[in-house]
Design a protein around this nucleic acid. Sequence first.
RNA 1: AGGCACGUACGUCAAUGGUAGACGGCUUCCCUUACAAGGAAGAGGUUGGGGGUUCGAGUCCCUCCGUGCCUACCA
Length: 890
Amino acid sequence: MDIPKQYDPKEAEQHHYERWEKNGYFAPEINKDPSAPVFSIVIPPPNVTGSLHMGHALQHTFMDVMTRHKRMCGYRALWLPGMDHAGISTQLMVSRALKKEGKSRHDLGREQFVERVWKWKNESGGQITVQMRREGASVDWSREKFTMDEALSRAVREVFVALYDEGLIYRGNRIVNWCPQDQTVLSDLEVDKLPQAGKLYYLQYPIKNSDRRLTVATTRPETMLGDTAVAVNPNDERYRDLVGQTVLLPLTDREIPIVADEYVDPEFGTGAVKVTPAHDPNDYEMGLRHNLPQIVVIDPHAKMTADAGAKYSGLDRYQAREKIVEDFEQLGLLEKVVDYEFSISKCERCKTVIEPLISTQWFMKMDQLRDLALEMMSREQKPRFVPETYEKIYTNWLENLRDWTISRQLWWGHQIPAWYTPQGEVIVARSEEEAREKAGTTELTQDPDVLDTWFSSALWPFSTLGWPNETDDLKTFYPTTVLVTARDIIFLWVSRMVMMGLKFMGKEPFADVFITGTILDSQGQRMSKTKMNGVDPIDVFDKFGVDATRLTLAQVGSTDIRWNEKQVESYRNFANKIWNAARFCMLNSEGAGVEPEVLERSTSLHDRWIVSRLNKTARDLNAAINDYQFHEAVQTLYHFFWDDFCDWYIELAKADVTAEEQSAARTEARTRLLTVLEQALRLLHPFMPYITEELWQRLPGEKQLHAAYAGAEPTVMLTAFPEGAANLIDEAAESRMQAIIELISRVRNIRSEMNIKPGERIPIIVGSPDQNLRRVFSSAREQISRLVRASDVSIGERLDAPRASARAVLAGGAELAVPLEGLIDFEQERRRLQREQEKLHAEAAKLEAQLGNPNFVSRAPEERVNEVRERIAAIAQQSSQLQQTVENLQ
RNA sequence: AGGCACGUACGUCAAUGGUAGACGGCUUCCCUUACAAGGAAGAGGUUGGGGGUUCGAGUCCCUCCGUGCCUACCA
């Protein structure tokens, strides 16, 4: 058999995925057990414009680990993939491409432009689906969805119509976040608030019939042209007499009132605020409270309107600002300008400064939906957030929820299913035909706006399963089991899915929400395109292999972590370790093969021990995965495989396995080794799909699939995940083995400290009054001898060793001596033993103090107290033996 | 401004209120016939400071210092 000495991940990553996909292993239909339990996840749909980043790789790893695990546990497992049409991003991307051709989308017109976007989508969209295959993501591609698929679009229209009919969706004139660059409205969640160094301008407004002037402070002087009032706090003594009076608004011929409003903070600025209802959200609210007119002085392109006055009309908002400041200065009404840092709203996509504008948009009332979600949380604690701290954040946000602006002035997206008659009547319908019927006319114009991308995403868990049709998929897979996502879209997406799911399905869309950590760069900064500090997962795959990368990501869990390539390197080494362990097993496999029953009839100690370790690992691993404790899961696997299996078991079994003579014992040992390896590969598979499949395929013997997948072409993917059989966990074997491990470690320690050459064979002497222990050591004599390179191992009731020996006292009262005639420095040996003695004393002192506290004895659980007593007794024994040893050296 | 996390070995991170661990790095030795991407041994911590609850605190409470995130923003 020809197996390279080093694992080559690229080799393994090349062909398995294609076979898995082609054979339909990812589809739940592969499961032939009609009573199989169901597990389902819908993927957070990546943007069609996106390419894979660390965040995706992280989420996908968790989802794939869980899906593969559950599939192997016999669940009818579905991980449903798909993509989001990503309204603004995609439109921007295609617009930019057009610009290079010297065209704008308006040159093409709506229909052609949308066609062009589809063309782009079909030709170059969805890069990420190729990359996901590389990741090994076991998604069911036969069910792949796109938010603009006809079926999903139908779900969107259905929901829109239903909510409209119920009065939850309405059209209204409101102040909104407007992006002058993208020419569309944005929801509050699509706006970034960034700190900005700016200026605060103090403007003086003359008071009518008075010499007094009222000074207002503003960061946006250009909006003063749209002022319709000045507001002060009703309790502000300074201005009490001015309330109700009138101000002559400079640069205009308008007179505006001074009003009192609680919103005004007397402490800030001058305590007097100019009110511009048409261009500031707070002023807008104040305007409503005081019935103030709204004067629009800035247009959707952020240019001044005719209402701003002839002098300013047509100017850009920033030019107008300069001009107005100049003009105030000339009038002697500019009191001062001070530097001021404030936060400014920018478009999340194009970073243009948002202009608050009054505009007619579609909104969704959230009260009723919000209450559904809050009730679900308080009544059934659903969804369950992991980590649970996010539950508070989620609930808190819901409680403060405001109406959602759902229309967008884009061409790419779900066009709003609303039509207008020539008379301006609004007809909302599922289709134009239905609208015509309702309206009784064919002369209809459809609303040009599209819906916020998140509107369709909110339906994702059921629209992808066929809703509004009552499909089998919907019945089988809804509600889904768990949602895995980053924390920054809990509001944008998670909460909205819950609300929509409850509203239209009557059930929560997922039982659990697992929130992943964030991968930061090595400086602790967020990875971002603009900072160029992102690490490309594909590069990491190329350098260290997919499996090593997945293991690195899996152990991140829910905490934020700095990216550290060393970590991946160590898991790359782990993959190599697995490879070489398997290589050893297979190079010594002649005449043997995997045979599950062999584990049940293990007789020798190390065999019972590894079977016990294997089953305990399986038990702990299942628990960890089910509990979203991925870090622990990875640690458990790593140590089982490297420490227990490689460092100890293979070494202990080596003599039997590599025996030159063919014998029943050799075959049995080889079979057992292969069988343990085969189970270990199953345990590793959800985390490391490629290397496990590559090796599993090469293992000889009868490798059984899970009963639910009987008849499928063999693959480790469809084997049964070991459950961790309680009857195979053998605590006695584990503690006996522990004694052997300790003995070997102590001898190695002595060898190292006494500078004995690794190749040199030395005799060792073990003494123990405990007959059982002696028996354990005796039966492992060969193995001990080999692992410590002993020339002779003598075991007796009493330690019978020459004075010139290095010594150690083991747990359970056993003593160890390594005769070192001529090699030993008695003084050095005495110091070494004394150091050990000190360690024991320190521990004993701590425990004695604990026991000396009467409160501990009376209040701590008895079990705990006994533990301490036993430990003290053990230390005392060890310590006195050690003391004896030291004295013998004198 | 409020809210929420976090602060543990040189680095990155673990640890149901019960003797602080892992991996990497570092030191010494070894190319021993699965693996030098390996093996053996070892050094390294008053868990950010202070206080409290408890028989017992890295873990719970208070406070201070530092860091990060979220939400809302004072024009």
